[in-house]
Amino acid sequence: MPFQDELGSGVRVVDYDPEWPHEFDHLAARLRGVLGDLALAIDHVGSTSVPGLAAKNCIDAQVRVAELSPYLVDLMESAGFRCRPEPWNRTETSNGQACDKLVFAPPIGERPTNIHFRLATGPNTRFALLFRDYLRANPAARTAWGAFKQRLAQSVPDIFDYGQIKAPATTLLMQSAEHWSTQTNWTVS
């Protein structure tokens, strides 16, 4: 669940904002300053990373790391970021495999972000990059996905319920993405 300062008027999916990549760049530079070489890569993921895709106005960054250690939590918290405590922010399932992760919220008062720490070689890391790259490459899927999320947000204002309903649709989307990855020989870069 969101932190108290993140509670608002429900889920709102907005049209794509061309400033999102610049906001991600600023966040990524800040994270590099905090993490140094511990960040093997910092990726813009999620819907805000797909030009033209409607999204919640929340930048998702993926930090690829060699290990998920308590030291990462200490570093991030010393920079003001807040570790999300919910179980679904600690473990996620990708292609049937449970994967550990850590998710951080921004310091109080800053723009909405989710910073996902994942193992560099984890299936959940691949999942996030495949989601992004598939929707960047497929205009029909991108338009349909954006329209679905906008309709869902209008009828389901609770963020938890929104996520629970969106999950099975994401599974269907990712089946198409997997097919596309095979056809195009897509790989994680």
Results as ranks from 00 to 15, higher is better:
M1F: 07
F3L: 14
D5T: 06
D15L: 00
Y16K: 01
E19Y: 02
P21I: 15
F24P: 04
A28Q: 03
A28W: 11
R30K: 12
R32I: 07
V34P: 02
V34N: 00
H44I: 11
V45M: 03
S49M: 13
C58S: 09
Q62H: 04
R64M: 02
R64L: 11
R64E: 00
A66Q: 04
A66V: 07
E67Y: 14
P70V: 08
E77W: 10
S78Q: 14
A79M: 11
G80R: 15
F81I: 08
R84C: 15
R84L: 15
W88R: 15
W88P: 07
R90G: 05
S94G: 10
D100R: 15
K101Y: 06
K101N: 10
P106V: 12
H116K: 04
F117S: 05
T125A: 07
R126V: 08
A128I: 01
A128M: 08
L135M: 08
P139V: 02
A140V: 12
A140P: 01
A140E: 02
R151D: 11
L152P: 13
A153M: 01
Q154H: 03
V156Q: 03
P157N: 13
G163P: 12
I165R: 09
I165W: 12
A169H: 13
T171W: 00
L173Q: 01
L173V: 10
M174K: 00
S176D: 13
A177S: 06
E178S: 07
H179A: 13
H179W: 00
W180Q: 04
Q183K: 15
T184R: 15
W186M: 12
W186S: 08
T187Y: 01
S189F: 01
